[in-house]
Amino acid sequence: MEQKNNTLLIYTLLYFAFLYVPVLFLPLFSFNDGNYMSFPLTGFTTEHYEEMWSKSNLHNALWASIKVGVVASTVSTTIALFAAKAFARYKFRGQNISYGAIMMPFLIPEIILAVSLLIIWLALGFKLGLVPVTLGHILFCTPFAMLILIARIEGFDFSLEEASRDLGENAWGTFFRVSLPLYLPGIIASLLLSFIISFDEFVLAFFLTGSDATLPMYMWAQMRFVQKLPHVLALGAVIIVFTTLIVLLAFWLRNLGQGKKKAEFGINIHE
């Protein structure tokens, strides 16, 4: 390992600033009592946060986003869990094509997915709303969930499942007594991260929600009017804090399992 490189260190820190500072302006201005987001700050206030409580549209949008997010993350994690198991466990013909097909939503601009879903939904004569949005989110979250779960399952020692079969458990018993508890940190991480992806997703929602706005749709509508901006800032700040906490929790869970695995591995080498 090389020793030190201060130029690179300074550059890296600047890059971190580039990543973080813009996002931090949202919470900063959310406490400013002016209507414009400009310097100098005019005074401290929490009224924009108070204002959020009074908006029933916001509450509806929040509720819609939670509903979509919970369904999308649960369904996509379940689907992805089976798929991840197949890829991590078996070798079979058509493996690469199947993997490519499931990862495809990741490799297609979202607007195209949105537009094609819009066309089929209207062609089938269905009403736009949260259902097509949820379907789109499931499609979009599945590759993410699968990547997270494959990372988890790939290091999994499949002889544990064989040991369970050998000790008299059938396939279901093995799944519930051995696989599920061991996959659990990965499953929770996948649920949390899929929920966040769905919760923040805008383009699919924009094309498919019709009149039932999700939270990003609500914010989008508010961003157009300067006088409504401050409470969007407050909402944004809340969302940023909330997402950060969930993501940190997910990362922690993911590493929790992997840390254990590493420790075990270390002991093996040690002896």
């Binding site: 002889s159 544990l160 040991a163 093996n268």
Partner: peptide
Amino acid sequence: LPPDKRPTNMVFQNYAIFPH
């Protein structure tokens, strides 16, 4: 017969002790 129906038991190479 599937493994759970056989009167055999196995000691695995890496022992496969359930870690949880």
